[in-house]
């Protein structure tokens, strides 16, 4: 199930042009991430795939078929959709929320609910939550229910609009790992929208960096974009958050401790060489300023380098 945008433009009735001229091929069975700051047109692009929004110009094709020729309700039922704040029906229990689309398409209720239980397992939710109402769940649990609901009709395409944007960072990490696992297991054609570049690089096989008006700044794999930012805008966007945390290792001689230096050139810590001596005082004296961080020999931060 590949998705293709062909010269798509969207101008809303109030005159706002959210997307100017957008073309892209979303390959099947992989995750494409649209990343860009708020208001750049990500949601508009995503919603044009399932005809929540119709383009003013251009076409969107799913497996070569123009979606404008598909009846919107039928189209939406075969495309999974997950959004921020889950959008769950507050008056339906968890299990009925998950079973929403199968019930809409005529699956008998008992069977739809039975299948939905399996989906709770799939997204790592306790079956004991099945008869709760969404309002009785935590934000992270609600998002899991949202993902389960998106998968319930076994769609080939999954659209996700900042689904983890409103949960706390620890839960977000968990949900991201779950999504990676699900993606390995299920191989849906996924379009994921986020404003978080770290999330984009973690989840995306293909990452599309967008500017205002849905203008493509760069398309590529995370490695390609990191290695070769197309322009200053991309370099800035990619580096803005990461630069502050980027640490480089400075070898100071064989068998010696390794000095970690942050982007501003200040020593951030030492990795003690096996049996080596900690030269804490030396290291700090070498360039210590008010900005130097507490010295530690943890290596996890080096992963960002």
């Amino acid at each position: 199930m590949s998705i293709e945008f062909r010269h798509v433009r969207k101008t809303y009735p109030d005159g706002t042009t959210a997307v100017e001229d957008f073309s892209l091929v979303v390959p099947s069975h992989s995750t494409t991430v649209f990343v860009g700051s708020s208001g750049c047109g990500k949601t508009t692009l995503l919603r044009m795939i399932n005809r929540m929004v119709d383009p003013s110009d251009g076409q969107i094709l799913i497996d070569e078929e123009d979606v404008s020729r598909v009846e919107p309700v039928a189209l939406r039922r075969r495309i999974g959709y997950v959004m921020q704040n889950s959008g769950l029906l507050p008056h339906r229990t968890v299990i009925d929320n998950v079973a929403t689309v199968p019930i809409l398409t005529g699956t008998p209720k008992a069977k739809a609910r039975q299948d939905a239980l399996g989906l709770l397992d799939r997204v790592g939710l306790d079956r004991a939550l099945a008869n709760r109402y969404p309002g009785q769940l935590s934000g992270g649990q609600q998002q899991r229910v949202g993902v389960a609901r998106g998968l319930a009709a076994d769609p080939n395409i999954l659209l996700m609009d900042e689904p983890f944007g409103a949960v706390d960072p620890i839960v977000r990490d968990e949900l991201q790992q779950e999504l990676l696992r699900l993606q390995r297991e299920l191989g849906k054609t996924t379009v994921f929208v986020t404003h978080d570049i770290d999330e984009a690089f973690l989840l995306g096989t293909q990452v599309v960096i967008l500017k205002r008006g849905g203008v493509v700044a760069q398309i590529g794999t995370p490695a390609e974009i990191l290695a070769n930012p197309a322009d200053d805008f991309v370099a800035d966007f990619v580096g803005a958050k990461r630069g502050k945390r980027r640490l480089t290792a400075e070898e100071r001689g064989a068998g010696d401790d390794v000095l970690l230096v942050d982007a501003a050139g200040y020593p951030a810590g030492l990795i003690a060489a096996p049996g080596g001596r900690l030269e804490l005082a030396d290291a700090l004296a070498a360039g210590a300023g008010p900005k130097s961080r507490s010295v530690s020999n943890k290596t996890d931060q080096a992963g960002d380098a």
Binding site: R47, N50, M52, V73, A74, R76, R77, Y81, M83, N85, S86, G87, L88, L89, P90, T100, V101, L104, T105, R149
Partner: peptide
């Protein structure tokens, strides 16, 4: 949001 999400489910 709930209305929109329901529409998106079909």
């Amino acid at each position: 949001d709930v209305r929109g999400s329901a529409r998106a489910q079909g």
